[in-house]
Simulated scan of single mutants.
Amino acid sequence: MNLPNKLTILRICMIPFFVLFMLVDLAGPASKWIALALFIIASLTDLLDGKIARKYQLVTNFGKFMDPLADKLLVCSAMICLTAMDRLAAWIVIIIISREFIISGFRLVAADSGVVIAASYWGKFKTTAQMIMICLLIADLGGFFGILEILFVYLALALTVISLIDYLIKNKSVLSEGSK
């Protein structure tokens, strides 16, 4: 197993520990900081595994499938925890997770037709905004950062919808019977 795939597996293995520190007060006030550190480290492995895989031509079918899945598991786990903690509205999480299901289904249909759909810049902006939003909500610093939290919640939500629309428009041929 190559390094990028090991980083993907590491990210998946970090998720239960992240969730544990988010939802269980194991370390008192330090719990949220441990959860935040775990989330940041896991997020950085997402960035790192892709760069390594492309730079050293270590792209594998396992990585193509598991890397985006690990990313979705991490982000969705964080948002569900934040909802349970009353830090993020459920309706926002439902919209964001629904987008992920729609895109995943779309990719499955495309793959069945032999079409590989690359991530767009809108999708990358969306992921970045979501990760910043999650970090701000976990840190829960209040004051000016409270304003940033709100800004990033709605920015992440807007980018989620924009990236979905962009994705559907660019790949609408996948749903037609005459897809390539």
Score class of each variant (00 low, 15 high):
Thr60Ser: 08
Met22Trp: 12
Met131Gln: 12
Leu82Val: 09
Phe62Ile: 04
Phe145Cys: 14
Ile40Thr: 12
Ser104Arg: 00
Leu151Tyr: 15
Ala111His: 03
Ile15Lys: 03
Trp91Thr: 04
Val93Met: 15
Asp67Gly: 00
Leu151Pro: 12
Asp67Arg: 00
Leu47Phe: 15
Arg87Ser: 12
Gly114Asp: 13
Gly178Pro: 04
Ile95Arg: 12
Pro68Leu: 03
Gly50Cys: 03
Tyr167Ala: 06
Leu141His: 15
Leu164Pro: 11
Thr60Tyr: 03
Ala110Val: 00
Lys172Ile: 09
Ile165Asn: 12
Ile15Tyr: 04
Val19His: 08
Asp140Gly: 14
Asn2Gly: 00
Lys6Gln: 09
Ser173Cys: 03
Gly178Glu: 07
Leu73Asp: 07
Ser163Thr: 06
Ala119Trp: 10
Cys81Ile: 13
Leu48Ile: 08
Lys172Trp: 07
Ala139Ile: 13
Leu58Met: 15
Met85Leu: 15
Val19Gly: 02
Glu177Met: 09
Ser120Pro: 13
Val19Leu: 03
Pro29His: 13
Ile102Cys: 01
Met22Gly: 11
Met133Trp: 15
Asn5Ile: 12
Thr128Gly: 15
Phe152Thr: 05
Ala156Cys: 08
Ile9Leu: 15
Asp49Gly: 10
Leu74Thr: 07
Leu47Thr: 15
Ser173Lys: 14
Leu73Tyr: 10
Leu148His: 10
Leu36Glu: 11
Leu155Ile: 13
Phe106His: 00
Ser120Gln: 09
Lys55Asp: 03
Leu36Lys: 07
Ile41Trp: 12
Ile12His: 09
